[in-house]
Design a binder for these strands. Structure first.
Lengths: 197, 197
DNA sequence: AAAACTTGAATGATCATTTAAAAAACTATT
DNA sequence: AATAGTTTTTTAAATGATCATTCAAGTTTT
């Protein structure tokens, strides 16, 4: 309890501020949002954010880390019950359109992060790592599903499709329908794989 | 000649500065790039940009307009010689991966513009107009190629795929291979349409 | 000579970040 | 369970840096 007590406020603030960052970036844009605006989302001050995160860049990094972990969790959950290679491919697709993850605010933050990642070392690193992870999952699952010559082309097509869906989701004015996105993704994957051999 | 002369320098600067904007945004990022950096790309000063474009926002808008026009031109050229609906669909796809258009710097500017468009009225307008145009082209060509029930799903899939390819291209460190991108796009479109009925 | 163009030096606004001092939460002791 | 001491948290105000934009005085072109 002693230790827990020490950590509690810090953890609460950490979560609050990351949530506030996603909301504020969605409202005002990654480039335009100020520390004060983020702070106001949860009724605190910019100085407080610096107390907990040090810099704006760290805050953005921590926010992106939360999204990456959300994606990873969604993926591992589905992986745990997948039996066949096809199941596992669908697990990867579905994870990307998980209810908890596939929201306008999340896709929007992701898109804006993506656009500015190349210009900030710490963000570029996160981006690279995640990209490599998704790619290797796709490669592994496609190995036993499509012939060797077409594998990379199909993997790229699938990844581009998914990125494109997020991009569109990021601009949406209405709430997203994650279940529908999963169906569409399966349909598209089905078409791409059906004739690939 | 008088009139031409009057316009010449203005036109040259206009072109130079738009090119400089694309390069500088690629180097430094849409959010981080300064007027001075853009000016330095062509050895002039920030004040000069303001003389010609008034504001940074106008400059960005003009830059995006050039890309939009490049895309439109590439499309119309190919449309002119397309005979069948299938030809016209391929024309739309190929235009998006035209040699003049599909470069890292262009895709990068496009991506960054895309991410920040929702937060600036004039840019949002451009974005909306372009999006509507591409969508209506796809709808028109798919009308006679795929059954009614699947048309929207396939159109969305194709558009998302193309957006995703741009997104990846924007991050590339090597020069792009536009011809290869066109081939891939045809291959993907082929798979999507083949089994859709 | 007039118009168009250029630029170095202000201007003024906006921000992230730091500081210092106060408030709150927690711990240990009695 | 009250209290004094310690650490953690909060914030208003200062700091300092960065920029887009404007200005005014030049230069070049027509």
């Amino acid at each position: 309890m002693l230790f827990m007590g020490r950590q509690r406020i810090r953890d609460i603030r950490h979560d609050e501020l990351i949530t506030a960052t996603i909301t504020a970036v969605h409202k005002r844009g990654y480039a335009a949002v100020t520390m004060t605006e983020i702070a106001q989302e949860v009724g605190t001050t910019a100085a407080s954010i610096n107390y907990y995160f040090g810099t704006k860049e760290n805050l953005m990094e921590a926010t992106m880390l939360r999204l990456l972990n959300l994606l990873k969790t969604a993926m591992l959950e589905r992986y745990a019950t997948a039996q066949t290679p096809r199941d596992r491919l669908i697990a990867v697709l579905d994870a990307n359109f998980d209810d908890r993850f596939y929201t306008v605010a999340h896709c929007n933050f992701w898109m804006q992060f993506w656009a500015s990642a190349p210009y900030t070392d710490s963000l570029a690193r996160l981006h690279r790592i995640n990209r490599a992870r998704v790619t290797s999952h796709f490669r592994a699952e496609l190995r036993s599903l499509v012939p060797h010559e077409r594998r990379e082309a199909l993997r790229e097509a699938l990844q581009c499709y998914m990125d494109g869906v997020w991009l569109e989701a990021a601009q949406s004015t209405a709430p997203l329908n994650a279940a529908h996105a999963r169906e569409e993704a399966r349909y598209v994957a089905g078409l791409l794989l059906k004739n690939s051999d």
